[in-house]
Design a protein around this nucleic acid. Structure first.
Lengths: 216, 216
DNA sequence: GTCTATAAATAGATAGAC
DNA sequence: GTCTATCTATTTATAGAC
């Protein structure tokens, strides 16, 4: 019994090695979900965890380094979520690619970190290798799915990915309430609507079976 | 000759009635184009116009009021830009609606104020009548175009608008460099690609001539 | 590893002189 | 209508005590 009797898990003072670090990362996702990248603040994280504003700087050199760790983690999770959604969508290559749009909307709603965080401008000058690699893997997955959807030529595949990303990101913005239009008019799932829109977009682009394969 | 010889248009001191007010609004669009809503700051506007940080508050009660005026103006301009784009697109209802997506991307690139500013959360509690009316007119235009595109039922028309808005907003984000993916890989026009994607989406949704008219 | 205290920015907003 | 000066609040980040 090293610990004082009845002490409630200690909200302040000594912690196990890396405990605060892990808590900071976890709290970062919560904060991002609530306020987005704009509302992300190291001071706010410290406040929520009941530690001083100086404490986080024992674990991360600065705000950017923390954000980069969060972004790297998010990229990995998002890649897996998209891969799982594609697999769950069946064998149709178009359905598989379309499913990633829905997965993106769901992921951003849950974790608050999408392309805006993963490929954030402010993290670019950091040249973090882990983050760059995670970003490449995410794009590689999408590129692979686009190719299998019938667009072997890199240029067309890239255009297709661009369409899916734009659509998914737009739906995530609608869903997150970045601005208030008629989203959530019904208690229907926005992610489902995003998936359907993506499928419609791909159908329209490939223009049916025997496609000309133009992603102009 | 009331003015001292050689005085360069007076960057400080007395101005004509409403001159600073107009300058503030104009500078707001510039600042929004450069830094987005996150970078919008009354202090920065004052700095750019060479006046004290107190001066703007003679013309606008607070930051929100200025932003609301800018948002109202943006809504009107965007509505006109979309209407013009639809008219320029010809008679095909699908092409007309799709053209609004391209117009949106171009407008945001030029003025920096899209749906995120016009329907901004932070302006909601202001309950500005002019802004609300301008927002309604914008939505009314889109609703009208969606109806003519074959979706008479309000629910379907709304879903169609949602798709166009999400796609357009996503392309604008890509174009603005909110995050850096492969946009602008070629010196092709992103707005043109957005329009094409919107047309593809609408074709896929209406599923060709003799459409079932489902915008699921 | 965490704390207190502190420094330096930046922003929003107001008071009173001119 | 604008200015100077000021106040309050927030954030990032560091120094030194414990």
């Amino acid at each position: 019994m090293v610990v004082t009797e009845g002490e409630p898990e200690r909200t302040r003072g000594r912690r196990a090695r890396g405990e605060l670090r892990a808590s900071l990362v976890a709290a970062s996702f919560e904060l991002l979900s609530e306020s987005g990248l704009a509302g992300f603040s190291v001071a706010e994280l410290a406040r929520r965890l009941g530690v001083s504003t100086a404490a986080p700087y024992r674990h991360f050199r600065d705000r950017e380094e923390l954000l980069a760790v969060v972004a790297t983690l998010a990229a990995g999770e998002l890649t897996e979520a998209m891969r799982a959604a594609a697999d769950a969508a069946g064998v149709d290559p178009v359905d598989r690619l379309a499913a990633t749009a829905g997965a993106y909307v769901r992921f951003v709603a849950a974790r608050g970190a999408g392309f805006d965080v993963i490929f954030a401008r402010e993290l670019r000058r950091l040249r973090d290798n882990d983050l760059a690699e995670a970003g490449r893997e995410l794009m590689a997955l999408l590129l692979d799915l686009a190719r299998r959807a019938g667009h072997v030529e890199p240029v067309h595949a890239l255009r297709l990915i661009e369409q899916i990303i734009a659509l998914a990101h737009g739906y995530a913005a609608l869903d997150g309430g970045d601005f208030l239009i008629s989203a959530r008019v019904f208690d229907d799932d926005v992610a489902v609507r995003a998936t359907r829109a993506a499928a419609a977009l791909l159908r329209g682009t490939t223009s049916g079976p025997g496609s000309r394969g133009d992603a102009r």
